[in-house]
Design a protein around this nucleic acid. Structure first.
Lengths: 185, 185
DNA sequence: TCGATTTGTCAACACGCTGTTTATTATCTC
DNA sequence: GAGATAATAAACAGCGTGTTGACAAATCGA
């Protein structure tokens, strides 16, 4: 599990793959090409990954796990953190890893990854749902709306070169969500 | 341009392709497979499409053109149509073509197609933007948030089996947008 | 440090899909 | 009906795929 050879191999494969993904869609990327660039034997690739799509999914899963770890740490520090701070944590995380997020959400975006991120953001609003007088079905739609809107402007934020701060973005998201919700009370 | 043979060929190719796309991602679909199912010669496929990805994009473009035609007709009928009615037109259109939308936005969703739909919905709010006292940069973020949120709950609407009416969906979108915006005035 | 184990390399293989070409037949439009 | 256009069938080289077995190199625990 912690064999240096394995770590190195996986690292160079991922690097070469990401490099290719910046230039063309995954459908045009071949295993052969990844391995040549990474200077890794093709047989070695196949011991770790099924194909380039499997590779992408593993990369995405690692990011999702990492975000969750990042948020969990914060959650433990003070249990009753207000959603605004939590949203800021997410926008902060995105800005720190802007390269990868821009790639996976915009340029050669993957809808499955997008949906995972939407889930994570949606979860931040769950504690609020329970304190409201909405029926559950309506509440789900409203919070899904907010989560998708949030991811949407994060995408736009990256496209525009991240000129606003993570805090400013969190504030926009928070304002839109609070007032949007208010209309259903 | 209006040759019956061409129309027929393109039709059966599209049908077979859509059928395959319901069962597996586009990356696992081969040109050979599409042609065998459609009972069309592979050489014929290549006279019309570059590959299966080109085929998908042409299908998506046709849908986008069709939505725009649909909305334009309505726009002409009464020039000052309120956005709520316009949004309802869109949700109506989606419900009429639920099969394809569910496929292209959910099951084997394509992020490019999703972004086109977001653009169309975002455009419905442009007339409102101009009447507001927001600075342009903020306004763009806000309307992008709304458009993404709208597409997001439309996706959820389809996933949940479209139990709400097109009108009800339009109302949720409209409420969320109006009150979200209000907080920035 | 040694030895067993694991990992990566190399070359080779059959396989299937690709994209294009040719000659031929079928169908359409006017 | 005649000329134009489109679809077919068969064949082709080319390329990436996924797997194999023998070998070399690096790692880890004792």
């Amino acid at each position: 599990m912690s064999d240096r050879r394995v770590k190195y191999t996986k690292m160079v494969i991922k690097e070469s793959f990401i490099k290719s993904l910046r230039q063309k869609p995954i459908s045009k990327i071949t295993v052969k090409e990844i391995c040549e660039d990474a200077d890794v034997n093709r047989a070695t690739f196949y011991t770790h990954y099924k194909d380039q799509y499997d590779l992408l999914q593993q990369i995405e899963n690692e990011i999702i796990e990492d975000i969750n770890r990042y948020l969990k740490d914060y959650d433990i520090q003070d249990a009753k953190v207000v959603p605004l701070d939590m949203i800021e944590k997410i926008t902060e995380y995105v800005s720190k890893n802007a390269d990868v997020f821009d790639l996976l959400l915009n340029l050669n975006g993957d809808i499955k990854f997008q949906q995972e991120v939407i889930k994570i953001i949606g979860n931040q609003f769950i504690p609020i749902i329970e304190n409201e007088k909405l029926n559950k079905a309506d509440a789900e739609y409203i919070y899904h709306f907010i989560a998708c809107g949030a991811v949407g402007i994060i995408q736009k934020w990256m496209k525009d070169g991240m000129k606003k701060s993570a805090r400013e973005m969190a504030e926009i998201i928070f304002k839109m969500s609070n007032n949007g919700r208010a209309s259903f009370e």
